[in-house]
Design a protein around this nucleic acid. Structure first.
Length: 237
DNA sequence: AAAAAACGCAACCGCGGAATC
DNA sequence: CGATTCCGCGGTTGCGTTTTT
């Protein structure tokens, strides 16, 4: 079928956003929310397409966005997560509160990729298959760990609490950071009860389980996992 | 000092899938 | 139940800035 364009392209602004546009968008969303991105720019009086407004809000205007350079811990976490998840930037961003998928993607492409051995970079077609393998490995690993003790992979569960603490109105609609997102990408075989059970397991006192856990703790937790070599079983990308 | 190259970031594009009609 | 709409994601591009020659 023929896809309708996301918006009428004629007469709309493109390129850099002006402070005035930012102001209009932010104040409109603050007042009315963003239930319908397509209709939002017209109602707000912006000469932008809905997609553009959404991107601007998600990446720069919404509350809780952390600006500035990535810390070493954040970079290491991105590398580690990328090893497991591949180019699933939204999933990686879920683990780094305050960072956006676009920002992480940029950091990866401009800085972090260079740290890798070039031989580990697969052609695109192979990477897709590898990614699914990694996901399956993660789920197997986390299932096994959960059956013994509090899983090191309980970060999936913690994702929800992390997002909740952001006070982000966006949670209600789009960038959910929820279990559904995980399921969307091919891990349906994991029963949802797994996550709640994991959360409530005895001795599950990982810092990640704390709703208001600071990001630094998240990062150090990741580093501990990888430094301990607990993930060595995963295939390299 | 100027030109070229490299870099980094913000934004756009197109696709897939969920939701709705 | 197929058609359509909308959202979100990942890949890519454009352009300003910085570094190198």
């Amino acid at each position: 079928m023929v896809r309708a364009p996301c918006c009428e392209k004629v007469g709309l602004n493109k390129g850099q956003w002006t402070p005035e546009e930012d102001q209009i968008l932010a104040s409109y969303i603050k007042k009315y929310g963003h239930e319908n991105w397509r209709a939002l720019p017209k109602e707000a009086g912006l000469l932008r397409c809905g997609k553009s407004c959404r991107l601007r809000w998600i990446n720069y205007l919404r509350p809780g966005i952390k600006r500035g350079n990535f810390t070493k811990e954040e970079e290491d976490a991105i590398i580690s997560l990328h090893q497991m998840l591949g180019n699933r930037w939204s999933a990686i961003a879920m683990m780094l509160p305050g960072r956006t998928d676009n920002e992480i993607k940029n950091v990866w492409n401009t800085h972090l990729k260079k740290r890798l051995n070039p031989n580990q970079i697969l052609p695109k077609s192979k990477r897709k298959m590898q990614r699914q393998d990694n996901l399956n490995s993660i789920m197997e690993f986390s299932s096994a760990s959960a059956s013994e003790s509090c899983s090191d992979f309980s970060f999936f569960s913690c994702t929800e609490s992390s997002n909740v603490t952001e006070g982000d109105s966006n949670n209600a609609s789009g960038n959910d950071g929820s279990l559904e997102s995980i399921h969307d990408h091919g891990v349906e075989e994991i029963d949802e009860s797994f996550w709640t059970e994991t959360l409530s397991m005895n001795g599950c006192d990982s810092p990640l389980m704390v709703a208001d856990s600071p990001i630094e703790e998240d990062m150090s937790f990741w580093l501990r996992i990888f430094e301990a070599g607990e993930l060595q079983g995963f295939p390299e990308i």
